[in-house]
Design a protein around this nucleic acid. Structure first.
Lengths: 237, 237
DNA sequence: CGGGCGCTTGATAGGCCTCAACGTAAGTGG
DNA sequence: CCACTTACGTTGAGGCCTATCAAGCGCCCG
């Protein structure tokens, strides 16, 4: 294995498949065209035609759908190294909106570069497909969470999942991580009301399990919490 | 456009991309090795290594995950023409179980054939990726459903979604379709209790909106129901 | 300094769950 | 051919989890 890349995207792909320096170079080339977006900016609108696809370099983003009744369901939380809007490369039309949570940097992916990378290096292609596959696994896991777990476990699992994902790109440890999400974001991601999220968070804090506050998530005892909530990160690998 | 294929898989792919006779032949070749499974048979177990991938030829199947607390979350309902366990071609390990609902016929896909088909005909490859993409869109939609809609609309949407999917492979019309699911299946798919599913179904039946009974789903007025529940099948295309 | 946003907390209500009992139909074995 | 079993569907009673409404606090920013 070569040196661990600092670039989160390369780092994430390396976790799936051990890439050579040359292959890492190709990955690097994929995101030349960096763009900057301010916090709150909507990169892609639901229903938009031919939206761009990006790799998130720094900052967080969320993808969501707005229901007819006006409520919002967050269907994905993206952290550095994640791909934004991969699906729309195929469909030519986005079925969800993507919004920057923080001020972010994103690298636009051109279909051409991607296809070329696929041709040249099947290993990189496979790694990207793995990333897409992991993406789906995360959605499926969330589906199970919302459908069959109570509010407390739902929140714990989401916080642990983010811990796992951030750690894999070097932005977190078992002790915790910086998290720009608001309680309302959690509510929209987990199918709950913001008020109830607040209550559960308070309970978790008072029970000395997790603290979600001031932009930081802090685990008192990560492993005990994982055992208590029966969290198993296997679905992501 | 050539003649509409009777084969549900070919028919489904044709809906995404208009395939030539030659390409349809290749699709046909993919599923030579037909297998038969009795109702209730579990084709793939959660955690199983190197599980097979199939195309469902006839009958229905469900994929699900069992939560630590013993409850079951159905994450996918497969009808003829759908692919079973595509993800595990990449991951080498299934993160969900797949079970036959009816006595089914399934064609095993060999990685080799698939790769070959991809090489020979990028159009077929694209169509299959579209199918995978549709699959994800369906999960995302269900996530929104469970998270942000009440029981009644949740059930209606699922029944309408199945109507749409079955119609696209020639197994249903706007009037209704044969449906082997039990009320418990609906409950496990929608994150509800079987008892509550029963009550909501009764209400829908008495309101003359949908009838779910004796293995058949019957819509009194499909379009009115779609409008009432604000169902929009766009996410599947 | 007003206003917006996020967080907090209390009171109240309701949707859905759980428990439990019973009906019905189909399959099994003697 | 009938007792027995099993699976699915139906219905009622009671209660919990979570939503909703409402009000107040602190902070940042124009």
């Amino acid at each position: 294995m070569s040196v661990v890349p600092t670039n989160p995207f390369a780092r994430k792909l390396s976790a799936f498949i051990d890439l050579s320096d040359e292959e890492l170079g190709i990955v690097e080339n994929i995101h030349q065209r960096r763009k900057h977006f301010f916090a709150g900016r909507v990169l892609v609108h639901e229903g938009q035609k031919d939206p761009a696809t990006y790799v998130l370099v720094s900052g967080w983003a969320i993808s969501y759908k707005v229901q007819p009744n006006g409520e919002r369901q967050i269907v994905g939380i993206q952290v550095p190294g994640d791909i934004l809007g991969l699906r729309s490369l195929l469909t030519k039309r986005s079925d969800q909106s993507i919004e920057a949570i923080l001020s972010i940097q994103a690298a636009e992916i051109e279909v051409f570069d991607l296809v070329e990378a696929f041709m040249k290096t099947p290993r990189v292609a496979t790694a990207i497909l793995c990333a897409a596959s992991q993406d789906k696994a995360i959605v499926v896991e969330r589906l199970g969470s919302i459908g069959r777990r109570d509010a407390e476990v739902r929140i714990i699992h989401l916080l642990l999942e983010l811990c796992y994902r951030l750690t894999s790109v070097g932005l977190g440890t078992k002790a915790g991580y910086a998290c720009p999400l608001t309680q309302s974001h959690l509510a929209d991601a987990l199918g709950m009301s913001p008020v109830h999220v607040n209550r559960v968070l308070r309970k978790l804090r008072e029970a000395r399990m997790v603290t979600f506050r001031d932009g930081f998530v802090t685990f008192t005892d990560h492993d005990r919490l994982a055992a208590y909530s029966r969290f198993d990160p296997d679905y992501m690998s």
